[in-house]
Computed example of a mutant assay.
Amino acid sequence: MLKKIFRFFFKLMLWFFGISIFFVGLFKFVPVPFTPLMAVRFIENKTSENAVVFSHDWEPLENISPNLQKAVIASEDGNFLKHSGFDFIAIQKAMKSNEKGRKLKGGSTISQQTAKNVFLWQGRSYFRKGLEAYFTVLIELIWGKERIMEVYLNSIEMGNGVYGAQAASRHWFSKDASHLSAREAAGIAAILPNPRKFSASSSTSYINRRKEKIQRVMRYVGRLNY
């Protein structure tokens, strides 16, 4: 009996590793068509009285303004170009902040956020965090920084029903993602913690302060090579 159970779980693990590596390898070259969050939002939208039109357009990284690339690094993950998927200094700071009873912070990198958005569901369980760490290692090894940034900027939620840089640029500023100014890019990056609540264009004083801070940090952010 124990042997059968062991074989079952062993085969299950082999299938999991095989399928996960296959899809990570596939998405190194193929645009990600949708994410679990998009599916959840779509279902929510179907049952909501205030339905919104979904917008998601994939653009190669070279067609996305370097301003936006720098803005999300400045806002979300200042060490993105240096770490290997995990910013342990940021994680330690987040843990200390949480222990002191301050606002909950996760210390997640852009790589971790990308792994979560593309392959996993939303949540804070240890099991999901473990899977997030696994997929983070995979995409760092197989994709590299440029592809991670490309997938991130094409997949994350940037407004209510708005996913990816191109859709966000059209929605907030009526222009293509390649033409975003530093101020506009900072506006999009500033709302990422809660893109369904805040506006990147007609911003509150809180978002305007975030924009200014992001723009200051952007000056010191390097550029991805492609």
Rank of each mutant, 00 (worst) to 15 (best):
G78P: 04
R196K: 15
V40C: 00
N160D: 13
G25H: 01
A168N: 01
S199Q: 12
F10Q: 08
L61K: 02
V151P: 04
N225T: 10
G106K: 12
F119E: 01
G85F: 03
V53F: 12
N225M: 06
L224W: 00
D57F: 04
H171D: 01
A94M: 10
V137A: 10
I214R: 04
V32R: 00
F42R: 11
L224K: 06
Y206T: 13
P33A: 05
A185N: 04
E212M: 11
R102G: 15
S205Q: 13
L12K: 10
I73F: 07
M149Y: 06
I191W: 10
M95A: 14
N208T: 11
G144E: 02
N98H: 09
W58M: 01
W172C: 03
R128N: 03
V118F: 00
A90D: 13
E184C: 08
K93C: 06
K28N: 08
I21P: 07
T114Y: 01
A200V: 09
L12Y: 07
K4P: 04
F119S: 04
P31K: 05
T136L: 07
Q166M: 05
Y134P: 07
Y163D: 07
G130Y: 08
K4E: 13
A90S: 11
K96C: 10
I21W: 12
K145H: 11
S125L: 10
A94Y: 09
E140F: 04
D57P: 00
K103V: 15
L120D: 05
I73L: 05
L141E: 02
F86L: 13
G101P: 06
L81Q: 13
E150I: 03
M95T: 13
G106R: 10
A74P: 02
K197N: 13
I5C: 04
E59N: 03
F34I: 09
T35Y: 01
P193C: 09
A133N: 07
N225F: 06
K213Q: 14
A177K: 01
I214P: 03
K3T: 12
G107F: 07
F23Q: 03
H171C: 04
W121T: 14
Y126H: 13
Q113P: 05
N154F: 08
H56W: 04
S84A: 15
E157C: 08
A115V: 07
D87M: 03
K3D: 09
Q92H: 12
I139V: 05
I148L: 02
L14A: 13
N117I: 00
S178C: 03
I148N: 01
L14G: 14
A182G: 04
S97Y: 10
Q112P: 01
E146T: 09
F127E: 02
G164P: 01
L141P: 00
T35R: 00
P33L: 02
A168Y: 01
N63E: 11
E132P: 03
A115G: 02
S111Y: 02
I89T: 14
K116D: 02
K4S: 13
A51Y: 12
I64C: 00
N67K: 04
K211I: 12
G144P: 03
I142N: 05
F8R: 07
G107K: 07
Y163F: 15
V40M: 08
S155P: 00
K46A: 14
M38C: 05
S97M: 14
G187A: 12
K100G: 13
F42V: 11
N194D: 15
A51W: 10
F29Q: 03
Q69W: 00
S174T: 10
A186E: 08
A165E: 00
I191C: 12
N63L: 09
E150P: 03
F42Q: 10
P36A: 06
